[in-house]
Amino acid sequence: MAEKKPKSRLTAISESPVWKSIFRTGIPVTRRQRMMGILNNVFLHLHPVRLPKHAVKLKYTWCMGGLSFFLFLVLTISGILLMFYYRPTVEYAYTDIMDLSEQVPLGIMRELHRWGAHAMVIAVWLHMFRVFMTGSYKPPREFNWVVGVLLMFLTLFLSFTGYLLPWDQLAIWAITVGSNMARATPFLGHEGPGASLLAIGDINLVTMSSDVRFALLGGRFVGEGALLRFYVLHCIGLPFIIMIFMAVHFWRVRKDGGISGPV
C-alpha cells in the first residue's frame, strides 16, 4: 500500500465543511477551479474568466480605471470613519476637524481622505486620457465613454462638496467663488443673462433667494445651510448617484465586448 502523505493544516482548513460552504471551488489549482473561482464569486465576477493577453499588460491599461475605483472605496471607508467625529454645523465643524488630528488615535484618517481624493481626481483624468489615446471610445463603446465623462464630472463635484466641510478660510472662499458662478447661470441664476425676463409684472421670479445658487447653498450666502447641504450631498447624495453610474459603467465594459483591443 502506498503511504498517504499527511495533510497540512492549510489543506485541512480548505477542505473543512465550513470553508467549502463559503468558497465552493477550493484552492484554485486546476484550470477549471480557477475559472470557477471567478465565476462563483460575486465580486470577482466583475471580470470575465479569460482575457486576451494585452489586457493584462500595464503598458496598455495603466490600471487607472481600477485604481480610480479602488480610491473610491478608500474614500468611502475613510469617509464613513470621519463621519463618526464630524458635526456639520458652523459652531462645531472647524473644531471637530482640529480634534481629528489631535484627539483621535492614528489621526491620519483626514489626510488619507483628502490626499486620496486628490489622487482620485488625477487617476480619473489619466484613465480618460488612456481611453482616448487608445481610441477605446469608438464603437461599440461610445455610450460607455459618455457615462465615463459623467463619472468624471461627478468625481469633481464630490471633491468640490467635500472642500467646504473643514469650514476654514480655504474652504469658505473656494466654495463662495465656485457657487457664485451658479449665480450667473443663464435664466436660472439671479445674475445670469435672461433671468430678468422671467418676471410677472414687476416681480422677478429669479431672485437671490429663488435661484439655482440658493438651491445649492440653502441660503443667500455660504453659511449654516450651505454646510449642511454640502455635507449631505458629499456623504449621501453624490455617492449614491456616482455608484449608480459606476455600476452602469462596469456593466457596459463587459457588455460592449470587454476591454478594447486591436481586432
Partner: peptide
C-alpha cells in the same frame, strides 16, 4: 475578451 455584443 471573449464576449461579443449581441447581433442586432
Amino acid at each position: 475578451m471573449s464576449e461579443k455584443p449581441i447581433p442586432r
